[in-house]
């Protein structure tokens, strides 16, 4: 058995394109997932019982069902059910935005709940409304504590995006499958993309550790 990286290196442009798509899906899912998660968290904490229960159900449902099942559902079932066309790309964005929003919602919730009750009292006493208090007092403090958990979840999201290859979206994983089949060099191809993923994610997670240390030093507690 001898290693031969030439075919893989010859297809590096295709792999890079895949990497770009991986980052694109991750970035867009974050872009939609974070605000959606905030909305879910606020609904969950709302005093309106029905709103809170609906939000809780959505959060728990998307946290307990496997992302691959969600992906298949949005790809195969959703278009028939609602008569819309779903490309692999839109499926990926829709699925991962909602899936990660459920996790972000829990981060937001524990961040908001970690803020001392006195902060609500102090704001209430000077006549601030619930919304003003959330926006001006609670969230600015909570967000800082949530940063490490956010980064951790974003890294998980990046890893989860490999699933989009199963519905033929041309992410890094899919491109690797493609090259492996064409060149008959699965060992080299899959080893190379494992290394790419490793480096990418390792850098991100080291970065998040640095940020977490900084926050810890500035005396801020964090939530997970």
């Amino acid at each position: 058995m001898e290693w031969n990286f030439a075919p893989v290196l010859g297809s590096m442009d295709i792999l890079l394109l895949g990497l770009l798509n991986t980052l694109k899906v991750t970035g867009l899912a974050l872009l939609f997932g974070v605000p959606l998660g905030l909305g879910l968290a606020l609904s969950r904490l709302s005093q309106m019982r029905i709103l809170s229960m609906v939000a809780a159900f959505i959060i728990e449902f998307f946290r307990t069902t496997p992302p691959l099942v969600q992906l298949f559902w949005f790809f195969f079932a959703f278009p028939i059910l609602f008569g819309v066309n779903m490309t692999p790309f839109t499926t990926a964005i829709v699925t991962f935005s909602i899936q990660s929003s459920a996790f972000f919602a829990e981060i937001f919730r524990s961040g908001i709940q970690s803020i001392d009750k006195g902060q609500w009292e102090g704001s209430k006493a000077i006549g601030m409304t619930r919304n003003q208090t959330l926006r001006r007092v609670i969230l600015p403090q909570a967000v800082k504590r949530m940063i490490p958990a956010f980064m951790e979840r974003s890294i998980e999201l990046l890893k989860t995006t490999t699933l989009v290859s199963t519905i033929a979206y041309t992410d890094l994983m899919y491109q690797a499958n493609d090259i492996a089949q064409r060149t008959f060099r699965p060992l080299e191809v899959y080893t190379v993309i494992a290394v790419i993923y490793f480096l990418l994610i390792f850098v991100f997670s080291q970065l998040s550790i640095v940020v977490e240390r900084r926050l810890a030093k500035s005396g801020e507690g964090t939530v997970h």
Binding site: M1, K159, T160, T162, L163, S165, M173, A176, N177, A180, P186, L187, V189, Y190, T191, I193, A194, Y197, F198, I201, F202, S205
Partner: peptide, 21 residues
């Protein structure tokens, strides 16, 4: 290593690459 490489990549690697190695 095993935390930072996505599980799907690991499974595929063990299925297609590991036997060759």
């Amino acid at each position: 290593i095993f935390r930072n490489v996505p599980v799907l990549v690991q499974i595929i690697w063990f299925y297609y690459a590991f036997p060759i190695l």
